[in-house]
Design a protein around this nucleic acid. Sequence first.
DNA 1: AAGTGGTCTAGACCACTGT
DNA 2: CAGTGGTCTAGACCACTTG
Lengths: 258, 258
Amino acid sequence: MQLGTVDRRDDRPPFRQIADQLRAAIERGELRPGDRLPSEATLIQHYGVARMTVRQAIQELRTEGRVVAEHGRGVFVQQPAPVRRLASDRFLRRHRDAGQAAFLAEADKSGVRPRVDQIEVTKTAPPADVRERLRLADDEPVVVRSRRYLADDRPVETAVSYLPLRIADGTAITEVNTGPGGIYARLEEAGHELGHFVEEVTARMPTTDERRRLELADGVPVLVVVRTAFDTGGQPLEVCDTVKAAPAYVLEYDIPAR
Amino acid sequence: MQLGTVDRRDDRPPFRQIADQLRAAIERGELRPGDRLPSEATLIQHYGVARMTVRQAIQELRTEGRVVAEHGRGVFVQQPAPVRRLASDRFLRRHRDAGQAAFLAEADKSGVRPRVDQIEVTKTAPPADVRERLRLADDEPVVVRSRRYLADDRPVETAVSYLPLRIADGTAITEVNTGPGGIYARLEEAGHELGHFVEEVTARMPTTDERRRLELADGVPVLVVVRTAFDTGGQPLEVCDTVKAAPAYVLEYDIPAR
DNA sequence: AAGTGGTCTAGACCACTGT
DNA sequence: CAGTGGTCTAGACCACTTG
């Protein structure tokens, strides 16, 4: 690939000139996804600057999510994540009847290989915002189901479900394996007719912990979706708090006009 | 405020220990929004480390969007933007009947002072993804309405609407001022009955241009919402491409279960 | 063993902000 | 002016990956 030089009379500081040149090379397609950038040593030599200067240039591209550094290997142009489109019909009954939880049904449709790991089930007191959404009495216990979803072995989402113990107790919901159709199928078997869901969507930068669990590069935001499931009588049955790697998702919602 | 020390036997490198301690102080409320962090010189003294080490710690908090550095003044805990909750009923007819466009109606509800500026109206050929969503014939022209929304004088959202010229021509939609109830009121007056909307939601880091128009700090992601309006016959009438400062918004959607 | 990026030190000069 | 953060230099040692 072709690199320029740093111009000390330029308004931009050297590290930004270097960052701009590398960014341009990526956008021209001279560096393609998966390609390794020139090593720090090469850039130091080429531009005649100190190491911190080229590191700062690379840092800028990392914050933008354009490149990923791999210790001992090099810095690589980011592979765009395969996008998963979540349509608002993904919780329809017919998917549960087919014996599939929402994530699995959705994965099938987009042709990726789904996997679930890091499943943990506990019984405890919920955080305040969950207690409010579930309209729980003080100190009322809940079942907490935590898990991580992977598509083609890349982690894409973490999810934590909260259900009042009085509703979930005695069902497979308190087991690690909930059986065909997932939580919602078990709720309906137990006589709770699902009425509607409310999803609250926000975006933010991940915590250090989330960055680790979702294997996120620097500068990659997350979509936070908090879904509350209500029965036909308007009573909340479940709160599901999910954190998704933002570049991997498009959420689609249908809104009636009247 | 109370600062700890760096422990060289700790698994975490010093810069991360310092970042963790500052982050904890913010979360404990010991450092409140608007407060200045201890200066680099103070931190260097206190922890007995080199300057680059404390800068790396602060860099981590900046990437997380928790603090903002101001050259010559200091590093400050980020002021959380007032959150605007967008409910899925915000496009209901009754708001238009009340003579208010969606943004104004919504602002009233959350008690902020709304403003719209940078309004530009042009006629041109749309980008490919818009042409697809509007099911346009090749080279079919559209009206493009671009504007910026502010809440309490802080920019929170930019929006670009595209409408087929054959639909918008001869209405106030092609004027800078669309009149009471906004675009959708004018469409209904022209005999187009609104049926439903589809919103596609993604999140990403802003471009340099978006960061400037929305006056975003480093490390603040944006929510991108692309809304397509359909008439009762399922024909697309409008595509609206919005970019929102992520921390300022919660999007709320209602999803039927059957 | 050689090459890569990760972390750190101890300085330097500069630009911006406030008094 | 002093105090702040922004940029840069020239080294050092370490941890990880690959051959």
